[in-house]
């Protein structure tokens, strides 16, 4: 199955990665050779196989409902690309 340029562009949109045409073409080529290799799986009949849900051989551990974290706003905002002391800031969103 071939992945065309339009698909590559759609996927890049979903992944929020902008691609110019040249890069998209190159990527389409790479993806096609990778998927050619992946398609090998189709040779296997897996109709009766239950998918693996987790590799960890354990059950989900539950936490008790305790507040443990303090106000660490300084730490939370420390690495943010903007300088606001209270908020994260992004370009204006218009709904």
């Amino acid at each position: 199955m071939a992945i065309d340029l339009k698909t590559v562009k759609h996927i890049s949109k979903l992944a929020r990665i902008s691609l110019d045409d040249e890069k998209a073409k190159k990527l389409a080529g790479d993806l096609n050779s990778i998927f050619e290799f992946i398609e090998k799986l189709n040779k296997l009949n897996t109709d009766k196989i239950e998918p693996l849900t987790s590799i960890a051989e354990t059950t989900l551990k539950l936490r008790s409902d305790e507040v443990k974290s303090k106000n660490i706003r300084d730490q939370i905002l420390k690495n943010s690309p903007n300088e606001n002391k209270d908020f994260f800031v992004v370009p204006k969103v218009v709904e």
Binding site: N84, D86, F87, F88, V89, V90, P91, K92, V93, V94
Partner: peptide
């Protein structure tokens, strides 16, 4: 959206 005219605060 309505505090800063240029940006959205989170």
């Amino acid at each position: 959206h309505d505090v800063d005219p240029q940006s959205t605060l989170v």
